[in-house]
Amino acid sequence: MLRYTLRRLLAIIPVLLIVSIIVFMIVHLTPGNPAYLILGEDSSPEAIEQLEQQLGLDKPKVAQYFDWLGSIFTGDLGQSIYSEEPVTQIISERIGPTFSLMVISMLLTLLVAIPTAIFIVWKRNTMLDPLFLSGSLLGTSIPEFWLALLLVLVFGVTIPIFPVAGYISISESLMDWLHHLILPGIVLAAVEIGLIARMLRDSMLESVNQDYTKTARGKGVKESTVLMKHVFSNALIPTTTVIGVTIAGLLGGTVIIETIFTIPGVGQLLIDSIHRRDYPVIQGVVLVIAFVYVLINLIVDLLYAFLDPRIRYD
C-alpha cells in the first residue's frame, strides 16, 4: 500500500510537466502584451521594449519556459508582473476562500444527495422515483450563473437574509464565514446533488436485488438496515469515483461563482490575471489546480482500497 502510494505520488510529476507545457503555450500564444497593458495606450514603443526586457519577455519562448520550469523546482513560481509579489504568496492568500467554498458545497452535496438516494431506493416502487429522476435532471441542467443570480435576487435582495458578496475568513468569525458561503455553496451543490444522488440511486438499485441482500434479508435483518448497510456500502464504491471527479471539478466551478459573489478566491484571481496578462500568476494558478486535481484522484484511488477489500494495491 505504501509503495503504491509512493509510486502514484511520483507519477504526478510527469503529469504536471505536461500541464506546465500546455499552460505555458496557451498563455504565451494568447494575443495581448502585459507591458502594453501596464504602461497604457499612450506609452512609447521604447518604454514598452524596456519593460519587456525587464520582465524577461524579450527572450525566446523556449528559454522563457525553461527559466520558469527551473524556478518551479526550487518552489518559486515567479513574481506577479502586475503586483510584483511572489506568485506562491498570492495563491496561498487566495486558496483559503476557494477551499472553504469547496468544503461547504461538498458537505451540502453529500448531506442532501446521500439521504435522498437512500430514501428514493427505499421507495423505489412508488411515483417518487420518476419524480426524483426528473428533479435530478433539472438540477444538473440548471446553469450555475443563472441559479446564482436568481438566489442573489431572492435571498439577497427581495428577502435580504444572506449577504450577496464578499468573504469573511473563518479565523475572524465562524458564523460570518458560513453566512457568506451558504448561497454560493448552494449554487455549486445544486448541480452536483443531482449528479451524485442519481449515481448513488443507480448503483443502489443495481445491488438491491443482489444475492447478498437476499442472504441479509434471510437472516431477518430489517429492510432499512439492508439498504443502509449492505446495499449502500457496495453502491458507495462506484459513487466514490464520481464524488472525486466532482470535488476536482468544483475547482473549475468556483471561477464563475467567485466572480458573481466576489469571493477573493483562486478562481477570481485567475480571471483577473487573465485580464492583466499576468503570465506567472496564470501559470501558477493553473498548475496548482492541476496538482490538486491529480491529488484528489489519488485520494479516491486509495479510498477504493479502504471501501472495497477486494482491491489491494500490491
Binding site: 444475492d211 437476499k214 434471510g218 437472516k219 431477518g220 456500502s233 457496495n234 472495497d308 477489500p309 477486494r310
Partner: peptide, 28 residues
C-alpha cells in the same frame, strides 16, 4: 406483518442460496 416475519426469518426458517460466490457481501 413484516416485523413478525423478520422474527421467523433466520431464526425459525433459514435459507441457503444457489450461488455462494455472490451470496456473501463482498465488503464485510
Amino acid at each position: 406483518q413484516d416485523k413478525e416475519l423478520r422474527k421467523i426469518r433466520g431464526k425459525e426458517i433459514a435459507m441457503i442460496f444457489q450461488d455462494p460466490m455472490s451470496s456473501l457481501n463482498p465488503v464485510f
